[in-house]
Amino acid sequence: MSFYDVTLVLANGFIISLIIFVITLLIGIPLGLPIALCSMSKFAPLRYLSKTVVWIVRGVPLMLQIFIIYYVPGLLFGNPIFANIDRYIIDNFTISNSGGLSDMILKSMGGLCAVLIAFSINYACYFSEIYRGGIESISKGQYEAGQVLGMTKSQVFRKVILLQVIKRIVPPMSNEIITLIKDTALANCITIPEIIMQAKNLAASKQIIWPLFYSGVFYLLFVGLLTILLGRLEKKLDYFRS
């Protein structure tokens, strides 16, 4: 297999990695906020519930969480949702074996859904802790200064607190985001054809190992890009200190 062909196969795989990356962020970033608010709630049962969930999700390997989400509905409740999704797709779509991107996605749709759920919950919990730390690090004086100026609590949060929190969470969020793109490789544990899976398949079928190492270049380039973009965002918020 030529270098060009391998690149093509791996690139397709990396697009699936990117899909997991983007959707996890789209769900995880907003979902982290209600979890953070629950963890800071004055209502103790809600606070404990939220903190327990976060503790479990952060304390168990993500790979195990993928297995749990993927298999437990079928094993425990007799309702294998993700297998059902796959069956539905096989029944309603014509899938060729050409190895094209859309065929690959369709074929692994059930597993992909499970992965996205596991990743979104997992990352939302990590983000929630970052949000909580950020919100709690803002001094009480900022809230009080806003309040004595007659602002409502929501005005204080939106106009005074929010941007300061964002400034503080950008560096830790950047770390998580960079970790996320590498974590997407875990999806291969339920045979989602992301880039590592593709490289492993080549190793098995074509007896070549170098594509596995080559796949690292994709991650490296993307992480480089992320580093530049997130660094720019951080710079943009450099105009004030809090």
């Binding site: 004086g141 900022q142 200064a145 309040q147 004595v148 007659g150 200190r241």
Partner: peptide, 19 residues
């Protein structure tokens, strides 16, 4: 909120909004 507006407050630690 309305009653507060009769008063102004200057804090020891300024508490200006940094942004």
């Amino acid at each position: 909120r309305q009653k507060r507006l009769h008063f102004g407050m200057v804090f020891q630690s300024f508490n200006l909004f940094p942004q």
